[in-house]
Simulated assay, not measured.
Amino acid sequence: MSENNVMGELPWTNSKQDDKVWLASSFRVVLFKTGIEKAGSVNQLGRELGYRSRVHPGWSVRQIMLGKQPFPLDRLKVFAEYLDMPLDEILRHRTMPTAVTLASTKKALIDSGMHYHLP
């Protein structure tokens, strides 16, 4: 199955899943790279997205970037605004959770020059 999938073609429709967004690895990593560059660090990006952990606000950012958890829709909206990017453009890269694999994420990290984030 291709990792990229048009939102309307996804098999789930219940609202519990609608607020959890999985993005294709190649797009997700580039999106986070842009956000980290703009914020200056993973921790600062976490703060910009509303994560308030004093020890490591970038923890959730890292987990989402690595494909270990979905993007909460409310945080994705904040991220889209922060990057000055239409949310619809981001949601075009929505995919099934099973399509987000360690291999696809590793490839995307390497291709983006973010090998230092490899799990």
Rank of each mutant, 00 (worst) to 15 (best):
M1Y: 06
E3P: 04
N5I: 14
N5E: 14
V6M: 14
V6A: 15
M7A: 15
G8C: 09
E9M: 15
E9Q: 15
L10P: 01
W12K: 11
N14H: 13
N14V: 11
S15P: 07
K16A: 15
Q17E: 15
D18W: 11
D18T: 15
D18Q: 15
D19S: 14
V21A: 10
V21R: 13
W22K: 04
W22M: 03
L23H: 02
A24M: 06
A24Y: 01
S25W: 01
S25C: 07
S25I: 03
S25M: 06
S26D: 13
S26M: 11
F27V: 07
F27G: 02
F27M: 07
R28A: 04
V29C: 05
V29P: 01
V30G: 04
L31P: 01
F32P: 00
F32E: 01
K33M: 09
T34Y: 05
G35R: 03
I36E: 06
I36R: 09
I36S: 07
K38T: 00
K38R: 13
G40L: 11
G40F: 02
G40S: 09
S41D: 08
S41H: 07
V42H: 03
N43D: 13
N43R: 10
N43S: 12
Q44M: 14
L45I: 03
G46A: 07
G46W: 00
E48S: 09
E48V: 06
G50A: 09
Y51I: 10
R52Y: 04
S53K: 11
S53E: 09
S53Q: 10
V55K: 15
H56D: 15
P57C: 07
G58H: 02
G58Y: 01
G58I: 04
G58D: 05
W59D: 12
W59F: 10
S60A: 15
V61I: 12
Q63F: 06
I64Y: 00
I64S: 04
I64T: 07
M65H: 02
M65I: 01
G67C: 05
Q69A: 12
Q69P: 03
Q69H: 08
P72C: 10
P72G: 08
L73I: 12
L73W: 02
L73T: 04
D74V: 08
D74T: 10
R75W: 00
R75V: 07
K77Y: 01
K77W: 00
V78A: 09
F79Y: 05
A80V: 04
E81P: 00
Y82E: 05
L83A: 03
L83S: 02
D84V: 09
D84T: 08
P86L: 11
P86C: 09
L87Y: 03
E89H: 11
E89V: 10
I90K: 03
I90S: 03
R92Q: 14
H93T: 02
R94L: 05
T95F: 02
T95P: 04
M96K: 14
M96Q: 14
P97A: 11
P97Q: 11
T98K: 11
T98M: 11
T98E: 13
T98N: 10
T101D: 05
T101Q: 06
T101H: 03
L102S: 12
L102V: 14
L102M: 13
A103Q: 12
S104H: 12
T105E: 00
T105G: 01
K106G: 02
K106W: 02
K107L: 13
A108S: 06
A108M: 05
A108P: 00
I110R: 12
I110V: 15
I110N: 07
D111S: 08
S112L: 06
M114D: 01
H115D: 13
H117N: 09
H117D: 05
P119R: 12
